[in-house]
Design a protein around this nucleic acid. Structure first.
Lengths: 152, 152
DNA sequence: TAATGTTGTGGGGAGATGTGGGTAATTTCC
DNA sequence: GGAAATTACCCACATCTCCCCACAACATTA
């Protein structure tokens, strides 16, 4: 099985302390070098992105190359890092979310965790449906072009 | 976890003596070679920049390489070094700010500390929101290009 | 069916963390 | 040199966070 590659969708409950389970199949492919640590941050959609620690370091290294002299770069670095928090899985395989991220993703009790190859996304189920409906789907030309460029 | 690399955002209170807490997660990644010492100085935005002592030495070396012959270089070197003050964390993990820097960053009781990879920034919360709103964001082409080249 | 392990969810308690204040040492100014 | 002000270091304590244990539901195997 591919290491650090996540696919599939799972439903869990966010508990009163703001903890959420990482799906057992995802825990199994999370490579040991991550030391049970992931980085949670704001996604581009209203969702929480969950990167394996190693994968996030790639982003960090790229950010480090950017000079802080340009205002645009400073702002970009800040928006990227501002919401990023490393968290470690507890003995039960859960992570603790920050209240800001819970708010940002509109999470309530029930959440959906989706594997999107190199990271996971934590969604409010209703929001996920909403966004999925808005975005062009299989009937759109763009979607077909993408599909043709990747599927073999 | 990456040493001397800071991400995330934390809220603290500046006390009557001008002291602020360094977020516990940041203290944990601050490598021992820094000997609990950081350098605080004026940021390019209205914020206080906080460098680990080691990282500041890298900056100093770069400044040293800049020729002092050009007036522009002299001015740049002067503004970077003029306000730079090394401070040591106390037993509780706080640092003492200088009144000049507090004024420069418009700090009042509540402050926000943001990790931006190689340093931290101490902000007046209102100022941070203001600057974030001013700078071209997702609607700017340049910003999107940066995002596409870095986000994975 | 019984036994055993895995998974998801809840909660309690020890230790860490954030914040205020006090006292002694040091500096500043006349 | 001495008084006043500032700084540096230490202690106190309420709150919160993280780590551990518990347990029910389900799956797996003997």
């Amino acid at each position: 099985m591919n290491k650090d590659t996540f696919t599939g969708e799972y439903r869990y409950a966010l508990d009163a302390k703001g903890r959420v389970n990482i799906p057992a199949p995802f825990r199994k492919v999370l490579s040991p070098e991550n030391e049970n640590t992931v980085v949670i941050t704001r996604g581009q959609d209203p969702t929480i992105w969950v990167y394996p620690a190693l994968e996030w370091q790639v982003i960090e290294n790229r950010l480090r190359e950017l000079s802080a002299l340009s205002p645009l770069n400073r702002s970009f670095i800040r928006t990227m890092t501002r919401w990023a928090t490393p968290v470690t899985l507890d003995k039960q395989g859960r992570i603790q979310l920050t209240s800001d991220l819970i708010q940002y993703a509109n999470l309530e009790k029930d959440v959906v965790i989706v594997g999107v190859i190199n990271k996971m996304e934590i969604w409010n189920p209703a929001r996920l449906e909403q966004v999925s409906a808005e975005i062009p789907q299989s009937d759109s030309e763009e979607f077909n072009n993408l599909a043709q460029s990747i599927i073999i």
